[in-house]
Structure formats: structure tokens, C-alpha cells
Write a protein that binds this DNA or RNA. Structure first.
Length: 579
RNA sequence: GCGCCCGUAGCUCAGUCGGAUAGAGCAACGGCCUUCUAAGCCGUAGGCCAUAGGUUCGAAUCCUAUCGGGCGCGCCA
């Protein structure tokens, strides 16, 4: 059930009856205040502007043609031409009863499933995952889960960076160590960070090392067996590391989803040849470049997009073009979604332009780069730890669980040790994920231990707690899974909860359209909050509650619990029976 | 220099294809546990939506300029 969609359709029908175009914007929104009902239709005012007529009069005509028989118990025109709709309790109750016996919680099934390629997480191999990888990983995963729930065919792609200059650098460093007689076993691959830092330092400071590194990149990309063997060492270690983290984070990415840069290697020369044939790329200062007039500065200087380096090496631009070809033509994607930080916005704009011109992206494939801001410290300056490094993701998660455990022990003394461990893990990880998922900002965001590890207010533990409260009541009520009762919406708290419960699909549609899980976070927090209000105001199992009312409230509770669980599951956050 | 993103309560953020009196959480203050889990609930206080113009019935939202922050601009990803 999508109430907004339903009201929009009804309004559009009324517009047509008035002789207005079918695509006139109905502008249906949730009412801003309780006295304005549940939904408001604002389309009459904009339409009146177009027609140059009186908005209030048009709203009246619109209302006369609007058939909300049985759906609304009150409709009224207010202000300059708002139409306020108060939904009928009987209708809400009936819809709720239908939704409650549905395995999909009343969410309709996608009638036109799409193939969606989602590119997310993308850790850099040979570098341990740090907090900066959190956003892409968990936002991508939440969107993927939501798309799948809706019914799209999702292809996860973990575009690991494993093929560029940095790898040449690591191999060059490793080669030197081996040449100096260090045994392969002793090379500290386990501590990739240190190894990477050493190599990077040499790359920046040591004469000749950078050139040597670039040579290794060319060798690697042209398939040299020895280089590939060394490269494989780094891959294996890194993949193992990120797999562990995905498991801890409850992220659905697996080994099978890894589609690293190297996977496109065989396509790269073909892309270059093709760009030359199509006269899109030209030689400039020794490199091969596509000049984009579309992104020219105001003096008319085109934006350069290097596709092949001096010396023949390929770059991530080449790889991303190949990825377009593969995803759009081979995988037949209708939509490609890429989650990376905003610094790469220009790059992806260039990739799309070139890919469209060269035909690597079909017209039918949409290409959505979903950016997010740079991570800042609590001082508002670019984030660095005291030692100038980054916070390791594994460290953050560990800290989260430790802190959660302390709180769990303090608040829930009746749990067994095993339960404490489990609850602490779910609460700690959930808190970290929710803190990040609930923010929409495309602008920079602040990394703060306290914000990440907060267990009060609009946090995952709040939602998990709401869930356990409902579950506790349902246990006490001693009812089975098939419990069904008539829904009676009498108190205001019951009605508000009911309306919110029926807004799930509306929310999911928006999350999918904008690739923004924070909308789902907001929804679930509001749902939990309304449940808490209902819980405090409307007794269920207490003395003096009429059986019919008790059963209706149990129905609301069962449905709210299922909704919370489902919603959190789409966010990749686990629930528990007690906490 | 040019370009992109951003500026909303003391703090962290919602709200931005124009809609009614701008919302939450944290922090502060005041209430609520012999009764379904107080990680909770109810209430109070807190705002020139960076600034200045413009567009119109109506602007946090759209346009222009200025200030402030971040990022990006030919061989890193």
C-alpha cells in the first residue's frame, strides 16, 4: 500500500476531469501539522498559477471531482488552496488488517523489475579498511537490500582497487626485499599498513623508485606471470581481511561479488583502440587524452580525461570505461549505482560523458554516481588521528562492542553471559551503522567516536529496544504467529501508529529512487517513537482493557514488530528478543 | 584562477524538483517507575535557516552577488 501514490492517482484523475493535462503535478505530501489532517494535496495552487485562475476556486473544483469515498473521512480546503485529507479510521484499519496477513507487510511487488549494478565498498587492496570505507560499504549494502526487497535484480560489484600505480609500488618494494634475501614468508604481509607506508615513502622520496614502480604496473597489466604471482599474494591477504570485516558488519558482500579493477584488464587495450578509431582520444604530451568540450572552463579550454599514460599504462579512467561497457552491454544493466566519496564527482562525470559518446553505456542504462562528503575531525578539519593516520574500521567496531557490553551489563543484569555477548555485538555494530546511515549529507561529515557509539536518542539501540519491548508483550500475551484480530483505531496514538505503519512502501520507493537509506532511518525512528508513545498511552495486557481492544492493540504490536525487524534488516541491522 | 559540494537551535543533523506557525536527537531545566523492559515517556526553554538583493499570492528551498568551510582541476584511485 502506497497512500501517497493512491492519492496522487485520484488527484490526477480529477485534474483530467477538469481538462488539465494528466501529468499535472498533484503535489501530495504528508501534512505538516495534525490539524491539517494526514495528507495534503498542494497541486491546485501550482495548476492555478499556470491557468491564471483563482487557486482556491480551482481547489474547490478539484475537490468536487476527487473521489475519496471510503478512504477519507474529511477533506477540506484551507489557506490559498491546500486540500487537507483526513484518512478514515475504518479504511486505515481495513488496510492494516490486509497488510498484517501479508508476508511482504503490504508492500506491493515491483511489476517492472530492473537489473541494477551496484558498485560499493571498493577497499584499496594492501591497505586495511578504515572508517572512510564505512559509508560506501553500508550505504551501498542498505540500498542493495532495499532494491532486492522491492524485486529488482541486483548485481553487487565490489570494485576493489588492485591494479594501478600503488600496486606497482608494492611489488617493487616486495621485489627489493626478496632480492635482499628476505624470505617470502617473513615479509610482513599480515601488517599491510606498515608495508604500504614503507613503499609509499620510497615512492615519494627515493629517486628511481617511482619509475620502477610504473614499469611494474605495465608488466602487471600486460600479464607478466611473476608479477601476477606477487600481486596474488597481496590480493589473498587483503580479501581475507575485508571478508572478516563484512561479516562483522553484517554486510552482504561476499568473495563472489569482488570485481576488481584487474578484472577488466583484457578489455583495456580494446577500449583505447576503439577511442582512437572513433577519434575521441588523441595524443597529448605523450599520453592519450579525451578532451571534453562539455566540461570546458569559461575560456573554452576543454577538460582533459587521460585514458592511457605515457609509457602505455592504463588508469582507473580506462578501467571505469571498460566497466561501463561490461555493465551496460554484458550485464544488461538498466541502472548503475556507484557509491564513492564526492572527490571523484568530476571523474565520474567524465566517465559517463565519454562512455555515452563511445557507446559503452546504452541510452537505456542510467548511470548514478552517489557521492558523499569527505570525513572531517571534530575540529572541522580533515580527519586525522593524533598520529596522523586513519582510524581502522576493525578498531572502531571493536570499541563499539566493548562500549555496548558495558551498557548492556549495567542495564540488563538478567541476561546470561552468552546473551550479553550477542546483544553487545548487535547493539554496538548497529549503533555504528545507524549513526552513519541516518545522515544524508552530501557535504562533509564529522567523524566522532561519541556520535558513532551513542546508544541514546535516535540510534539503532533505540529501535532495537522498541523491538524488544513489543516482543516482550507478545511473549506475555502468549499468542501464536497466526494471531489475527479486528483492528480498532480509537485513540489518537493508535491512529498515528496505523498511518505510519502504512507508509512503509512510500518510504522504500523514495529510498530506491534517491539511493538514500537515511530516509528509511528517519521512517523507522519515527515508527519506533510512535510505538513508544502508543505503548505508554495505550495499555494492552493490563487490567480493565476490553478483549476487543486488547486484541486490536496486539495486532498493531505484531505488525509494528515485524515492520521494525524488516526495516532494520534492510539497513543491515540485527534485532534481538531481549536486551 | 576556474569548477563542484556545503553553511539551519550551544552541539550533531532532518526538512531543499517553492507551500501554512522551520523539525528531531544530544546537552540544559521540570515532571513520570509497588502496574506490559526508565537504553523509555511527558513537558519547558532554545532560530534574522551565513549575509545582501531578486523572482511571486507564498522562499530554508529557485536566481545573482558577497563572506566562510571543504574538495577537485594531464599522466594516484
Amino acid at each position: 500500500m502506497n497512500i501517497k501514490h493512491l492519492l496522487t492517482e485520484k488527484t490526477q484523475a480529477a485534474f483530467i476531469a477538469l481538462g488539465l493535462p494528466a501529468d499535472t503535478n498533484a503535489a501530495v505530501t504528508v501534512s505538516t501539522k495534525p490539524e491539517f489532517g494526514d495528507y495534503q494535496i498542494n497541486g491546485a495552487m501550482a495548476a492555478a498559477k499556470l491557468l491564471k485562475t483563482n487557486p482556491r476556486q480551482l481547489a474547490e473544483q478539484l475537490l468536487a471531482h476527487l473521489s475519496l469515498e471510503g478512504i477519507a473521512e474529511k477533506t477540506e480546503i484551507a489557506g490559498p488552496g491546500f486540500i487537507n485529507v483526513t484518512l478514515a479510521k475504518s479504511w486505515l484499519a481495513a488496510e492494516l488488517e490486509t497488510a498484517a496477513i501479508d508476508t511482504r507487510l503490504g508492500v506491493s511487488t515491483n511489476v517492472t523489475p530492473q537489473t541494477v549494478v551496484v558498485d560499493y565498498s571498493a577497499p584499496n587492496l594492501a591497505k586495511e579498511m578504515h572508517v572512510g570505507h564505512l559509508r560506501s560499504t553500508i550505504i551501498g549494502d542498505a540500498v542493495v537490500r532495499t532494491l532486492e526487497f522491492w524485486g529488482d535484480k541486483v548485481i553487487r560489484q565490489n570494485h576493489m582497487g588492485d591494479w594501478g600505480t600503488q600496486f606497482g609500488m608494492l611489488i617493487a618494494h616486495l621485489e627489493d626485499k626478496l632480492a635482499a634475501g628476505v624470505d617470502l614468508e617473513q615479509v610482513a604481509l599480515a601488517d599491510l599498513e606498515d608495508f604500504y607506508r614503507e613503499a609509499k615513502k620510497r615512492f615519494d622520496d627515493e629517486a628511481g623508485f617511482a619509475d620502477k614502480s610504473r614499469d611494474y604496473v605495465v608488466q602487471l597489466q600486460s600479464g607478466d606471470a611473476h608479477c601476477k604471482k606477487l600481486w596474488q599474494l597481496f590480493i589473498d591477504t587483503s580479501v581475507k581481511h575485508s571478508e572478516e570485516l563484512y561479516k562483522k558488519l553484517n554486510v552482504t558482500l561476499t568473495n563472489a561479488d569482488i570485481k576488481p579493477e584487474s578484472a577488466y584488464n583484457d578489455m583495456l587495450q580494446g577500449i583505447i583502440d576503439d577511442l582512437k578509431t572513433k577519434a575521441l582520444a588523441e595524443e597529448s604530451m605523450g599520453a592519450l587524452v579525451v578532451f571534453l568540450q562539455e566540461l570546458a572552463d569559461k575560456d573554452g579550454n576543454p577538460s582533459p580525461f587521460i585514458v592511457q599514460k605515457t609509457g602505455g599504462g592504463f588508469l582507473y579512467s580506462t578501467t571505469d570505461l571498460a566497466a561501463c561497457q561490461y555493465r551496460s552491454h554484458t550485464l544488461n544493466a538498466d541502472r548503475i549505482i556507484i557509491f564513492t566519496d564526492a572527490r571523484q564527482a568530476l571523474h565520474f562525470k567524465q566517465v559517463e560523458l565519454v562512455a555515452r559518446k563511445a557507446g559503452y553505456l546504452r541510452d537505456a542504462t542510467s548511470y548514478d554516481h552517489c557521492p558523499f562528503g569527505t570525513m572531517m575531525g571534530e575540529d572541522g578539519k580533515p580527519f586525522k588521528t593524533r598520529t596522523g593516520g586513519t582510524v581502522k574500521l576493525a578498531e572502531l567496531l571493536e570499541e563499539a562492542v566493548v562500549r555496548a557490553k558495558a551498557v548492556v551489563k549495567e542495564k540488563a543484569s538478567d541476561l546470561t553471559d552468552t546473551e550479553v555477548e550477542e546483544v553487545a555485538r548487535k547493539v554496538g555494530i548497529g549503533a555504528v551503522k545507524f549513526a552513519d546511515l541516518s545522515k544524508n549529507r552530501t557535504s562533509d561529515y564529522i567523524f566522532s567516536w561519541n556520535a558513532m557509539l551513542s546508544f541514546e536518542g535516535a540510534t539503532a539501540p533505540y529501535l532495537q529496544y522498541a523491538y524488544t519491548r513489543v516482543r516482550s508483550i507478545l511473549r506475555r500475551a502468549d499468542i501464536n504467529d497466526n494471531f489475527v484480530a479486528k483492528v480498532l483505531l480509537v485513540d489518537e496514538q493508535e491512529k498515528q501508529l496505523a498511518v505510519k505503519l502504512l507508509r512503509f512502501e512510500e518510504t522504500l520507493a523514495q529510498v530506491i529512487k534517491d539511493a538514500q537509506p537515511n530516509l528509511l532511518c528517519n521512517y523507522l525512528y519515527e515508527l519506533a517513537s510512535l510505538y513508544m508513545t502508543f505503548y505508554e498511552a495505550c495499555p494492552i495486557l493490563k487490567e480493565g482493557v476490553e478483549p476487543a481492544q486488547r486484541d486490536s492493540r496486539l495486532m498493531l504490536s505484531i505488525f509494528a514488530a515485524r515492520m521494525l525487524k524488516q526495516g532494520l534488516e534492510l539497513l543491515g541491522i540485527e534485532t534481538m528478543e531481549r536486551m
